[in-house]
Amino acid sequence: MKPHCLVLAIACLAIFTVPNLAAAQEDRSPVSQCQAIAQNIPKATFASFSGVAPVVPAVSEGEDVKFTYLGHSTFEIETPGGIVIATDYNGWYRPAVTPDVVTMNKAHSTHYTLTPDPDIKHVLHGWSDIPGEKARINLVVGDAYIRNVTTDIRFSYGLGGSQLDGNSIFIFEIADLCIGHLGHLHYELTDAHYTEIGRLDVVMVPVDGGLTMGADSMSRVIKRLRSSLILPMHRRGPPVNSFISMFGNGFDVNYAPDNSLTVSMRTLPKKPLIYVMKDVQ
């Protein structure tokens, strides 16, 4: 081949390959460090990235993650890199600063708002507005990777039946910690759910005793998750002790004097700990 023909061929190859590479980079998805890989779970599908580098959160400058209970099922989560997340944000319970990210659940009006502060950069809905589709969250913000696992919920106001994928369990992967917020969980999780969730070091769990699930059902979920740190929330009606009574000597219990807790991979309790913040007691 003549030299000028070779140059032309290389140029043509570059024209057709560079856009494809750019498209592949745009389509790349974050990779979960907490998701379990189970070969024997039917219908469990894991992504393949075909050699394209995955999106990864920024490296945390520290290792401490701070949790502050604001009320109902809203926690403020502050990452080592200064990203502020508010869970089940309804506009009533707000962090002292405008959060970078808020997650919402459409199960009840106390779990979401359609008029959030416009200064919030990322408003993540746990439901899809398209019938028959699931909400799909895969987002990296600073040193946090946020994803979701959908579950069904009962219809409200005695209508009967279930809304498919109407609840999202939000999962936050921060500073090597796997953190889960169960949202308005109405049904016990399936094997496929546990596979999709993966490891949870910290879990925020509703303990209302029936608005979501009864204490016995919810305790079975928590025992299956095997989290190191359990943070009760969404307490209405029965005392939190109704939930705690479902656990034996394999779990420690701490009734905290305030509503904040700082934790890291190094400081996770060796024995599973149910940590009851002040306003949940």
Rank of each mutant, 00 (worst) to 15 (best):
A96G: 01
D100M: 06
A107N: 07
A44S: 11
E63N: 14
A58E: 15
E76Q: 14
I83Y: 13
N20D: 01
Q33R: 10
G81T: 11
A47W: 12
F67S: 02
Y93L: 03
V65G: 08
K43E: 14
I77K: 02
H72W: 11
T68D: 07
C34R: 08
S60P: 15
A22G: 01
S48K: 14
I83K: 15
T115S: 13
N105E: 06
P99C: 13
V18M: 10
Q25V: 09
Q33M: 06
E26D: 06
D117T: 05
K106S: 10
F49R: 09
K43C: 03
T115Y: 06
V52L: 09
Y89P: 04
A96L: 08
E26F: 05
T17D: 01
P30D: 07
H108F: 12
H108A: 15
V102E: 06
K43F: 13
G51N: 05
Y112A: 03
G82E: 03
A23F: 04
V59N: 05
Y89W: 05
D64N: 13
T110L: 06
V52T: 14
H72C: 01
D100N: 12
T115P: 00
P95S: 13
P30S: 13
P80M: 14
T110A: 11
I41L: 01
F16D: 00
D100A: 11
T113N: 03
H108C: 07
H72M: 02
K43L: 14
P30Y: 07
T17F: 11
V18D: 00
L21D: 02
A53D: 02
F49H: 09
T17P: 00
Q39M: 14
I15K: 01
P30Q: 07
P116I: 01
V31Y: 02
V101A: 01
Q35Y: 01
E61R: 12
G71Q: 08
I77P: 05
E76G: 01
A36S: 15
A86K: 09
P80V: 09
Q39I: 01
E76Y: 00
S29V: 12
R94W: 00
D88R: 04
V97K: 15
F16P: 00
V102W: 08
A24S: 09
H111D: 09
S60T: 14
P80G: 06
F46E: 03
V102L: 06
V102G: 08
Q35W: 01
G51W: 06
Q35G: 01
D64V: 13
Y93S: 04
V55C: 04
A38W: 07
G91N: 09
A86N: 15
T74E: 07
K66S: 12
A24D: 05
T45V: 13
P118N: 06
I85T: 04
